[in-house]
């Protein structure tokens, strides 16, 4: 197990489209999943990490809204998400996001309020989950990392929606 170093903008690896995973029995993959989970747990108020943030261009992310500053009343706890696909979304909401890879800023980002997402777990089993609110937001933010996208790409106005972080964590 290891706590991984997180890449920060403008590292060009954050801009790559990550590759699909098909070999679920690989010890390297299982090790990377454990390392991502340990990294998420070790960083204060960290609710999600995507593999590309740690320099691995793979469609893999981990989420746990229970680690947040103000955990939502309902969430799915720790999730290991591989090759995710958003099947359906509804509603939109604006919320403030902070990113490990952009540590000096937070931004107001429009996201779908609820999503249905299909993915494979760490054993390759297909799962489908309905996520809402903050947890849906975190999932969309992490999936963006798999596509080489950062939340600043979704900011409408740098004047009213991007903020310098007051207390760097």
């Amino acid at each position: 197990m290891a706590i991984l170093d997180i890449l920060t903008y403008p590292d060009s690896r954050l801009r790559e489209y990550a590759e699909e995973i098909d070999n679920f029995s690989s010890p390297e993959l299982q090790q990377l999943i454990d390392d991502l989970l340990e990294t998420m747990a070790a960083l204060p108020a960290c609710v999600g990490v995507a593999a590309p943030q740690a320099g691995y261009s793979l469609r893999l992310l981990v989420i746990d809204c229970g680690n947040g500053r103000k955990p939502p009343a309902q969430h799915h706890g720790q999730l290991v998400v591989i090759n995710p696909d958003i099947l359906h979304w509804s509603g939109t909401d604006i919320g403030r996001e902070g990113c490990l890879s952009l540590p000096d800023y937070t931004g107001n980002v429009v996201r779908a309020q609820s999503i249905r997402v299909r993915f494979q777990d760490r054993h390759g089993q297909e799962q489908t989950l309905e996520l809402e609110g903050f947890e849906a937001r975190v999932m969309q933010h992490e999936i963006d990392h798999l596509d080489g996208r950062l939340f600043t790409d979704r900011i409408v106005s740098r004047k009213t929606d991007l903020f310098q972080r007051k207390n760097r964590l």
Binding site: L43, P44, A45, C46, V47, G48, V49, N67, G68, R69, K70, I94, G95, R96, E97, G98, C99, L100, P103, T106, N108, F134, V138, H141, E142, F163, R165, K166, N167, L169
Partner: peptide, 9 residues
């Protein structure tokens, strides 16, 4: 009112 959630993703 939108509070800045300081969680990190």
């Amino acid at each position: 009112l939108r509070l800045a959630d300081s969680s990190l993703m």
